[in-house]
């Protein structure tokens, strides 16, 4: 689904000023940095952390939506949801591959996730209680993901930028699909409309939190911006999201749960109310409604699957040994 405004970076770098200046010159010339190019250690670390968090978000994001696959209301919706959750797994796979080009293995990253050390998007620590949540996630969460990820298509690191181009196409499809679920609910019975409004009420603020802490509080933005890992600040992206989403809510006849939300004619944007940053930090630090359940689910899948992965490896070895015996006998 998406990468949150990166949490907990602030890497130090130890290269000489000459090396850093030469690297910065390549960035300024809009050259793409490729896996075998020289790069400052902090650039590498920041990217590993960001791409890793993004990959984990895709994978953990399969859980809240996966919660409704067996209960989707129609066969058409079931197939679309199953395909969407599968897409998110595919995004995780490309992103792990992109991170692997920086010298970290998928196994290492997965072990960090299941140990609870790795961060992922805070929004997936909230529960999906109704079918409307599936619409709201597609519309809002994939919508926020697109805001975050479209600029990443121009990220200075080549493999990440290329992965994002492919991922963004699918995320915008997911966003339209989610909005269409909401539209059907909005056009439906009173029970359906109420379900839609309730979902918006619960997912609105967590969606705004997806862009990460406010600009003043974020430690790494400046360096990431100079290196063209990040192109916009958290607050800039959040504002774009609000401006794009409020009219969509109006078209649905739904209201975001924010009494302070109002069009600001002078600024040409929506003003919105104060985000509950205490809630955000609590969720980021592991105290959201489902942080423990999400990590436990990933851990269970990883541990329950260990014998399968070992067997696949053992079988491949046996097969290779038999092949070399056969070749030797020729």
């Amino acid at each position: 689904m998406y990468s949150q405004g990166l949490i907990g970076s602030g890497e130090q770098t130890t290269e000489t000023p000459e090396i850093l200046a030469a690297f910065q010159a390549r960035i300024d010339a809009d050259e793409k940095i490729e896996p075998n190019d020289p790069m400052p250690a902090a650039y590498r670390k920041t990217l590993i952390r960001q791409i890793g968090q993004h990959a984990h978000s895709e994978i953990v994001g399969m859980l809240p939506e996966g919660n409704w696959i067996t209960r989707a209301p129609t066969l058409r919706r079931k197939v679309a949801l199953l395909a969407k959750v599968q897409d998110e797994g595919g995004h995780g796979l490309y992103l792990y591959s992109a991170a692997e080009t920086l010298g970290v293995s998928r196994k290492q990253m997965t072990e960090e996730l299941v140990s609870g050390r790795a961060k992922y998007s805070s929004i997936f620590n909230y529960p999906t209680q109704t079918w409307a949540d599936i619409g709201a996630i597609g519309w809002l969460v994939d919508g926020a993901a697109i805001m975050n990820q479209v600029p990443l298509c121009r990220c200075s690191y080549g493999p990440y930028a290329r992965a994002m181009i492919r991922v963004c196409k699918e995320e915008s499809f997911h966003q339209r699909q989610g909005y269409e679920i909401m539209l059907k609910l909005a056009e439906g019975s009173l029970a359906q409309k109420e379900m839609a409004q309730d979902a918006l009420n619960r997912w609105w603020w967590p969606s705004l939190m997806m862009f990460g802490p406010p600009d003043g509080a974020s430690e790494h933005s400046d360096q990431s911006t100079r290196w063209k890992i990040k192109r916009f600040t958290n607050d800039e992206l959040r504002q774009k999201f609000v401006d794009a989403t409020v009219p969509q809510a109006q078209r649905l006849g739904l209201s975001p749960p924010d009494p302070a939300l109002a069009w600001n004619e002078a600024e040409g944007r929506y003003d919105y109310g104060e985000i509950d940053w205490d809630e955000f930090w609590a969720v980021v630090k592991g105290h959201g409604p489902l942080n423990k359940a999400r990590v436990a689910a990933r851990k269970k899948a990883w541990e329950d699957g260990a014998w399968v992965r070992e067997a696949a490896l053992a079988h491949a070895k046996k097969r290779a040994a038999r092949q070399s015996v056969a070749i030797a006998a020729e």
């Binding site: 959750v85 796979l93 269970k300 899948a301 992965r309």
Partner: peptide, 9 residues
């Protein structure tokens, strides 16, 4: 039912 819980991605 396996979706999201498989032994490998």
């Amino acid at each position: 039912e396996w979706c999201g819980h498989a032994p490998m991605l």
